[in-house]
Nucleic acid binder design. Sequence first.
RNA 1: GGCGCGUUGGUCAAGCGGUUAAGACACCGCCCUUUCACGGCGGCUACAUGGGUUCGAAUCCCAUACGCGUCACCA
Length: 487
Amino acid sequence: MADKMRVRFAPSPTGPFHIGGARSALFNWLLAKKDEGCLVLRIEDTDRERSTKESEENIKEALKWLGITWDEGIDVGGEHGPYRQTERLHIYEEYTKKLLASGQAYECFCTDEEIEAERQALKDAGKMPIYQGHCRHLTEEQKEAYRAEGRKPTIRFRVPENQEIIVDDMVRGRVTFDSNGVGDFVIVKSDGIPVYNYAVVIDDATMEITHVIRAEEHLSNTPRQVVLYEALGLPTPRFGHVSLILGKDRTKMSKRHGATSVDQYRKLGYLPEAIVNFLALLGWSPTGEEEILSAEQLIEQFSMDRVAKNPAVFDIDKLNWINAQYMKNADPAMICDLAIPHLVEAGYITEDISAEEKAKLVEFTAAVQDHLSYAAQLTELADLYFNDAFDVTDEEMKEILADETVPAVTSLFAQKMNELEVVDFAAVKAIFKAIGKELKVGGKKVFMPLRIVTTGQMHGPDLAKMIPIIGRERILARMARTLDALK
RNA sequence: GGCGCGUUGGUCAAGCGGUUAAGACACCGCCCUUUCACGGCGGCUACAUGGGUUCGAAUCCCAUACGCGUCACCA
């Protein structure tokens, strides 16, 4: 095709922006970037009950945060606007008139109750619960009678019978459906608002979308759309249905599976590059063996024929690992900023933290950032830095402190610390070395007691790094206090 | 229930008729580090089942099982 590729992302603003939506957006974006095509952002807000302005904002913010930019659509404009479905009602109306005039669509006066009863009866009889066409051939008199009753019609599309509907899918291959299994479906609700399956067709066609990349849950809807493209005489785009993202229990990701919105990950202190990297790997795989890939690399390598058919389970361990890779090279001040709300919430600091305290905290962050999967985890290490009043109750720790070498090690440590002019990493490291040498005890017998006595923990970041950050005063006070308590 | 899609290790996955069935995460072990981590090295574990087609099948076909999606005046 000579024309450039035009793809779109068309979320409905009905809740927090889901991680699955982010992946769909990402795939479209990667494809557009790769082919120097155009990504359109359209808002599908025909569900007026559930659509909110906040959700729309949330989606835009999340996309921007992830670095997914759109070339055309809400906010940025373009030649195919407007880009919000509720602002396009007049466009749909034109097409509806044509369909009605040609008899390809008709008014349906059935009530919810009638439809429901019919559906139930069919189900009970073990048949397909599709609309039986009760209103297919109403006369003008019958319609008038219904109107006089106060019934407001919906508009149904007359689905052609005995047709094989073919969807040539970029990821699934050729999928065929029988038109008899579809049933006349509603295209315009009784309030005059078009239904998703209808609006999406007109929008994609009039926006000249060439490739529709979306989640697999839409595959079963596609025959309806194909049949509409044909009826409207509009060009059908290429489809690509990407499989779903599942939770640990192999069902569609939902609240039960923990954090599911982009926002939640952002707040926990995950980095956008890591999320993008992780999402790209969920359902797509690179040719090479390297899995840590920048957006530029992803764009270069991305292609639809490497998109997997099978659904993928969201693996938080892998996300954590990928994020940790990006965290290592990240600016400690930034990580610290991301962690601060969590430190406040955990009660370690208050929001009005001084510049001096903040600087210390950044130092601390720098010392531990290799240990973090995401910024909020800093709270798990925060005791190290903030808690001067820990108690040693753990039996294993007590045992280590009961060793005969401990008194000598601790007192020599205190002495050497006090003699120090500058307390820095090299100096502390030298002290450890000297203690081991002078007392002829192994590394473990030097480090473990001192670690426990100064931090109340058995594991943690490099002690020689931590001591200068916590400071001589506090370190020695902690040690004295702990030793005292054990007597 | 109808229709549709899927099924390679615990997880993500490569594989497109002939491979010792890649790689990554997790897990385990070893090394490095006089602690802890990081890092390095190594190990563990897989083609859902049953029939075909073929000289040869993880790869092609058909059944079965299981999972998921969809059948709204939601998107």
